[in-house]
């Protein structure tokens, strides 16, 4: 639980970074404003899970060593998933 709490600021940093690097959206369909922002936040949350998936895996599998290839690790359930 303490580990998850430590993750939270990191996720917020990701969310902030996503919103910081905004560029114009060239869309024929109206991408919306709030719904576009939701995508940015959602992307940040999923990206947080993606980058930290190894640590999250070890959190729930303390007894077994993590596999050598991080790409093969299961991706944790995230806010969009």
């Amino acid at each position: 639980m303490r580990f998850l709490l430590r993750l939270f600021p990191l996720i917020l940093i990701f969310a902030g970074a996503m919103l910081l690097f905004e560029r114009p959206a060239y869309a024929y369909a109206d991408p919306g404003t709030g719904l576009l922002a939701i995508q940015a936040v959602g992307s940040a949350l999923i990206a947080g899970g993606w980058y930290l998936r190894r640590k999250i895996y070890t959190l729930f599998h303390r007894d077994s060593a993590a596999p050598a290839e991080p790409q093969r690790l299961p991706v944790p359930k995230d806010s969009e998933g």
Binding site: M18, E22, A25, S43, I46, A47, E80, G81
Partner: peptide, 30 residues
């Protein structure tokens, strides 16, 4: 989405920074 719309006075023009293609596809699928 409604709160984000309500808070911003002008349209939020968003397109995220360059992302690892594998991660980008993963995010889109999610």
């Amino acid at each position: 989405a409604a709160l984000f719309e309500g808070k911003s006075g002008k349209p939020r023009k968003a397109k995220p920074a360059k992302t690892n293609p594998e991660l980008a596809a993963h995010i889109l699928h999610k």
